[in-house]
Design a protein around this nucleic acid. Structure first.
Lengths: 157, 157
DNA sequence: GTCGCTGCAAAGTCTTTGCAGAGAG
DNA sequence: CTCTCTGCAAAGACTTTGCAGCGAC
């Protein structure tokens, strides 16, 4: 059986419903742009930059005019709603991913920029313990391993 | 090379010497600005933004004219030389710290922006193991725990 | 119909770069 | 002396904001 612990926890319909609830609760409107952004994030397995997301939407929905400003605004909204999380590293700004996945950490190739996800229960446990020791109210955490991925190591040979 | 377990591994003289060596090796010049930046980073226990570092230098050395561009240029240089490391998180850009310390991870308060350092050997071990499993050549790693620090929790009461 | 949302362009940030004079080697 | 560094200001990259018309409710 395929290991599926890194797959999405929610199906799209449920996620969409959740998003609509949040919008309603805050007297915000459900628009085509917002739906398209959520859907595109849902369908993508990648970690996307705002600009990358914008480009992807333009290529998937060539008829839809969507401004980069709307992408930024919607990403902020989704982040505030805890639907997406952002990852910032290096100089190149932020990347976003859907938060409705199993929690995981990241291994980032400094050569090709590719990101591999992983989970380690032992590390998760230790993090909680450390936060507790410092009386720190943990809301979130992230771990990154930087280095050269297998592919790039081979390329360099 | 074995590191000892003090907070700062090197005393300032040794660090400065190392920096001079790197400069010489790359036909770069040792200037007052570069020394002042290194010294200020060394003396600071904080994680500094380029702008914060610039302000700190201006207040500590009011007679020295130093441009923000030089701070950026020197920080890049120091980062390339592995003398400082940068930490990026949230929207607020990058913070730098001297790399000549024992490795540690960070606990970041999202309310006051304060950073607490910690080390956990178990986590370090697991990271190495994970990288190995993925055939990933680990160069560096960082871990952040985000949340509310003790002080801010009390403030909120 | 109301009021939030959108695209656009303009304005902000933060960071980098070009340049001519200053200064280290 | 040579060639790198520096401060300055201008240019870039990325992100946010103001506005007038559009569209969800």
């Amino acid at each position: 059986m395929q290991k599926n612990f890194q797959t999405k926890t929610l199906d799209y319909e449920t996620l969409l419903e959740e998003f609509k609830q949040i919008l309603k609760k805050n007297t915000l409107k459900f628009t085509l742009q917002r739906e398209v952004i959520l859907k595109t994030l849902y369908d993508s397995t990648e970690h996307l930059t705002p600009e990358g997301l914008h480009r992807l939407i333009q290529s998937k929905y060539p008829d839809l005019k969507i401004g980069i400003a709307t992408v930024y605004r919607t990403l902020s909204l989704l982040e505030d709603s805890n639907i997406v999380t952002s990852l910032s590293f290096g100089a190149q700004g932020k990347k976003y991913e859907l938060g409705a996945k199993e929690h995981h950490d990241h291994m980032i190739c400094t050569e090709c920029g590719n990101i591999t996800e992983f989970v380690d229960e032992e590390i998760e446990k230790r993090q909680k313990k450390i936060a507790k020791e410092f009386d720190f109210l943990m809301k979130d955490h992230s771990m990154q391993i930087y280095g050269i991925c297998k592919k790039c190591q081979e390329k360099n040979k």
